[in-house]
Design a protein around this nucleic acid. Structure first.
Length: 152
DNA sequence: GCCAACGTTGGC
DNA sequence: GCCAACGTTGGC
């Protein structure tokens, strides 16, 4: 059992969008970074905890709790010619990009990036490190427990 | 394998 | 819209 922070732009998929989806689940499409892909493909297990983070928006921060709902499988968008996420080097036989499904557990209050930065207990959180851009990062179990406490 | 040029991310 | 930080590409 591991814990993750996963960024989503709310203009693409927000926590409220997720709540409205069938089974409150979304396929985590569009990851085109090898490190983030490897986390999904090689490490994620069904039931892993997810902090659902709103990025590139007015109020960046953690907006809800979710969980990994499937093992990783090929991202279907890599095969769709003309699509933003099309990858000409990927084939169904040798897919390059993978995604898991993510299911909502519950929407929470917004734990803003600002508040996280002001919380000394969270200083080691990957998302707060300088220059961090990875859209998927592991979360230490103690950080997970601390954050869940803040979101009660 | 090096590294300059370019593209992307994402907070501000 | 700016731009720092980082990742990728491709010539050599």
């Amino acid at each position: 059992m591991r814990y993750w922070l996963m960024k989503s732009e709310p203009s693409d998929v927000s926590i409220d969008d997720l709540a409205g989806f069938e089974n409150q689940t979304v396929d985590w499409y569009g990851v085109r970074n090898y490190q983030a892909r490897n986390f999904m493909r090689d490490q994620m297990q069904v039931g892993d905890g997810v902090l659902f983070y709103h990025s590139n928006c007015d109020e960046p921060g953690i907006a809800g709790i979710a969980e990994v709902a499937t093992l990783a499988y090929p991202d279907r968008l890599q095969f769709i010619e003309g699509h933003k996420y099309f990858d000409p080097k990927a084939t169904p036989e040798t897919p390059r990009w993978f995604n898991v499904d993510v299911k909502l557990v519950r929407k929470t209050r917004l734990l803003s990036l600002k508040e996280m930065r002001e919380t000394p207990e969270l200083e080691n959180l990957r998302i707060l490190q300088r220059g961090n851009r990875l859209s998927i990062t592991p979360v230490d179990p103690r950080d997970w427990a601390f954050i869940l406490e803040q979101l009660k």
